[in-house]
Simulated scan of single mutants.
Amino acid sequence: MEGYLVYIRPIRYQSFKKYGHTIRSTDNLTQLYSYDYALINCRDGTEDVVFAYENPVYIEPASGIGVLVVLYDDSPEIFLFARPVCINPDVEFCVLPYDCDFSYYIYSSGIHAERPFNAHALVRSNRTRLSINRIYTFLYMEENKNFVFKGERHPYWELMYVDIGELTAVVSGEKYQLKQGEMIIYRPNEFHAIHANKKSMVSFLNIAFDLQAEGDVIKRRIYHIDKDVRDLLRIMISESQRQDEYSVDFMEANLKLLLLRLIRGEVAPQENAAVPSEEFVINRKEIVHRAKQLITQGLSHGDCSVAEIARQLNISTSHLYRIFKEFTGDSVQTFIINERFSLAKEMIALGSMNISQISARLDFCSPTYFSTKFKDRFGMTPREYSRSVYRK
């Protein structure tokens, strides 16, 4: 069998008839009084041996999930062993566990032969070779032309994609120049530092994650990003802002697809020309809309921090300040102040809290300060406003 096993086929009458036949009812096996009977327990350490019996042999799954490997003219075929079968005389076969311990019943008679055969390698080729166990951080950052990060090392993988501008990455003493539309991956425990080129601002995406892979499959070099990979990044950014119960699954699945494209060589290395940043569009309007929602929610619970809002949106505070001003015309702080007083009026009108409680809930330093600022804005104190509301 050449290549890799993508899936294991089920046992069907037509596909199995050259090796034996399927058995519809396990009751038929209880009639084999003249046969030797045994319960066989298989584990991953099972010896790589195939058997052939001089008489028909009957096998039946008992517990766990197993695979049946049969040979025809020394060519192996693999089946998911989920039903009882009869194997013809002189047909070589073996039963192996699939991801867990497995046991089966065997009914046999007469003598049998056995010989070494590496069937485990065939079954292992069906296993997943790369898995993303966790995404630790996902952060889009905008920095000025003098940006410098002095460096760190950590026990997980990290991907960095340059969306706007240019960056220099220093990895274990080696320098890499990253242009717009290029990406680099740091291995665990590699010391890495970055700095801008002092010519223009820079925007980049950082993803830190835990990866398990067979062999040295991911090379540390700069990759140029094509449209398909940018689409994967877009989905991940969208899910990082959506934050529902399946967002983590979507992000991990798309990160795995991205890495698999790198491993297969479907993403070109550095020498290709850069792609304009416009191809990698981040939905800034959606970020601003979500930021407004988080501010309102935070204020109503007495906890509204710009840094925390930026963290929940997976962007830097400087990026949040910039795009908020761009799309609203106001700074984040101005919006927070306006929203705080708007909520204050609603709470006063509701009448379920007194002035001191409202002041504390909206994080004013004191009721007196709250009353002073309220009057400066609306021309009346909170108590005067409450009376006017009640009269209405």
Rank of each mutant, 00 (worst) to 15 (best):
V6F: 04
I8V: 03
Y13M: 15
S15G: 13
F16V: 10
Y19G: 10
T22M: 11
D27E: 15
N28S: 15
L29E: 09
L32P: 08
Y35M: 08
Y37D: 11
I40Q: 10
D44W: 13
V49N: 09
Y53D: 05
V57L: 04
I59D: 00
I59S: 06
A62F: 05
S63K: 09
G64R: 07
V69I: 06
V69E: 01
V70I: 07
V85M: 05
D90S: 12
D90H: 09
E92G: 07
L96M: 09
Y98S: 00
D99H: 12
F102C: 05
Y104L: 02
G110M: 10
A119F: 08
A119C: 10
H120K: 14
R124W: 12
T128F: 06
E142M: 07
N146Q: 08
F149E: 12
E152S: 15
P155V: 00
E158A: 05
L159T: 02
M160A: 15
G173E: 05
Q177P: 13
Q177N: 11
I184C: 08
R187A: 09
N189E: 04
N189V: 09
H192W: 06
K198A: 07
M201E: 15
I207Y: 08
I218W: 03
K219Q: 10
I225Y: 10
D226M: 06
E239V: 04
Q241Y: 12
Q241E: 13
R242T: 15
D244S: 11
M251A: 06
N254K: 03
V267Q: 06
A273S: 14
A274Y: 11
V281Q: 06
R284S: 13
I287N: 09
A291H: 03
Q293F: 08
S300C: 11
D303Q: 14
R311A: 13
R311S: 08
T317S: 10
Y321A: 07
F324H: 04
F327H: 01
T328Q: 06
F335Q: 00
I337T: 00
I337W: 08
E339V: 06
L343Q: 01
E346P: 02
A360V: 04
L362Y: 01
C365N: 13
S366W: 00
K375Y: 09
T381Q: 11
Y385P: 04
R391F: 07
K392N: 13
